[in-house]
C-alpha cells in the first residue's frame, strides 16, 4: 500500500471516529432521564417560544429524523444556542478556543522544548547525577496535580509577593482599538506566564521520560558506535544521530498528548481564571447549559482525534523505514 492510499484510509477512519463520537453524544444526551427537549431547549422558556424552538430543532420529529438533523448540525459545527447567554454555540467556541490554544500551545512548546532537551542529555549521560535528578523532577512534575501547583504559585507569587495577577487574561481598563495593540499583548503575556509555567511544568515530565528512554534504546544500537568510530563530533552524534532517531516516537506521542492536554486545560483555566474553553465547558455543565457543553465537548474530542490522525501521518514522513501495510 502506498502512502496516498494510507492517507486516504486513515482519513476515512478519522471521519468514522468523529461520527462515532457525535453519535455517542447524541445517545448520551437523549438517554438522560426526563424530557429530552430540556437538553436542547432552555426549560425556562415557555409557551409558543418554546414550541417554535422545539420545531426549529426538529425535536418534534421521530428519533431517526432528529438524528439526521443532528449529524448535519455537527458536520457544520452548529450546536444551537446557549441557554445562558443566548449566543450561538459556534460563536462561543470561536471566542474561547483561541484563548485555550494560546495558553496550551505556549505551555506545550516550552514543555516539549525543555523536556526533550533535558531528556536527550539525561539519556546521553546515563547514570549521572544529572540523569537521576531530572528523572526525579519529571516524576514529581507528573505527580503533583497541576491545579494544586497552580494554587501554590498563586499563593506565593500572587497573594504573597504580588508579582502575578490572581486571575484572568487581561487587566481591566486597558484601552485597545485592535488586537495588535502592544500594550494589550504585553498585558496578556503577563497574565499568561503563571498558568503557562505551571502547565508547562506538568507537561514537561512526559517528553522528558519518554525521550530519555528512547535515547537509552537508540544509544545501545550499533550505528551509534559506528558514529563514534567515524570521528563525528560528540554534539553531532548526540543530536544529529541519537536524538534524531530517538525523536521519532516522541513526535507521535507528543501529538497525541497535545490532543489530550487541550482537554486537560479545564483545570488550569479554572485555577487561574483563564477564560478559555475548558472553563467555559465546566461552567456550562454546572449551569446545565447543554448546547454549550455539547459543543465544547465535541471540539475537545475533535482535537484529540485530529491530533491522533496527524501523529499517524507524521510518523510516516519522519521515518524513512515506515512502510504502509
Amino acid at each position: 500500500m502506498g502512502r496516498a492510499q494510507f492517507v486516504v484510509r486513515r482519513t476515512l477512519q478519522l471521519i468514522v471516529t468523529l461520527w462515532a463520537v457525535a453519535t455517542a453524544l447524541f445517545l448520551l444526551f437523549r438517554s438522560m432521564p426526563g424530557d429530552p427537549t430540556t437538553y436542547i431547549v432552555d426549560p425556562s422558556l415557555s409557551g409558543e417560544a418554546r414550541e417554535r424552538l422545539i420545531e426549529s430543532y426538529g425535536l418534534n420529529e421521530p428519533l431517526h429524523v432528529q438524528y439526521m438533523i443532528y449529524i448535519q448540525d455537527v458536520a457544520t459545527l452548529s450546536f444551537g444556542q446557549s441557554f445562558h447567554s443566548n449566543r450561538a454555540v459556534r460563536d462561543i467556541i470561536a471566542l474561547y478556543l483561541p484563548r485555550t490554544l494560546l495558553l496550551m500551545l505556549t505551555a506545550f512548546f516550552f514543555a516539549y522544548l525543555i523536556g526533550i532537551t533535558v531528556g536527550i542529555i539525561a539519556g546521553w549521560r546515563r547514570n549521572s547525577d544529572f540523569e537521576r535528578r531530572s528523572v526525579f523532577i519529571a516524576l514529581i512534575a507528573r505527580s503533583f496535580p497541576d491545579f494544586w501547583v497552580g494554587l501554590i504559585v498563586l499563593w506565593i507569587f500572587g497573594a504573597w509577593l504580588d508579582v502575578i495577577p490572581m486571575s484572568g487574561m487581561r487587566s481591566g481598563g486597558i484601552q485597545y482599538d485592535s488586537y495588535w495593540n502592544v500594550e494589550l499583548w504585553l498585558d496578556t503575556i503577563w497574565h499568561l506566564i503563571a498558568p503557562a509555567a505551571v502547565l508547562g511544568f506538568y507537561l514537561m515530565g512526559y517528553p522528558l521520560l519518554l525521550m530519555r528512554n528512547s535515547m537509552l534504546e537508540v544509544l545501545s544500537q550499533d550505528f551509534i558506535e559506528v558514529c563514534r568510530a567515524r570521528g563525528l563530533k560528540e554534539r553531532s552524534i548526540m543530536f544529529k544521530h541519537a536524538a534524531r532517531n530517538a525523536l521519532l516516537p516522541i513526535v507521535t506521542a507528543g501529538a497525541v498528548a497535545l490532543g489530550y492536554a487541550v482537554g486537560g486545560s479545564v483545570l488550569i483555566e479554572t485555577v487561574f481564571g483563564w477564560p478559555g474553553m475548558g472553563r467555559e465547558m465546566v461552567n456550562a455543565v454546572l449551569r446545565r447549559d447543554y448546547p454549550v457543553a455539547q459543543g465544547t465537548f465535541f471540539i475537545f474530542a475533535m482535537t484529540v482525534i485530529l491530533l491522533n490522525f496527524i501523529a499517524d501521518l507524521a510518523y510516516g514522513f519522519l521515518d524513512p523505514r515506515v512502510t504502509y501495510d
Binding site: Q221, D222, F223, V226, H241, R244, P320, R321
Partner: peptide
Amino acid sequence: QSAMNGLDPV
C-alpha cells in the same frame, strides 16, 4: 562486527 546495522537508519 555488526556492519549490517552500522548505518544510521534515518
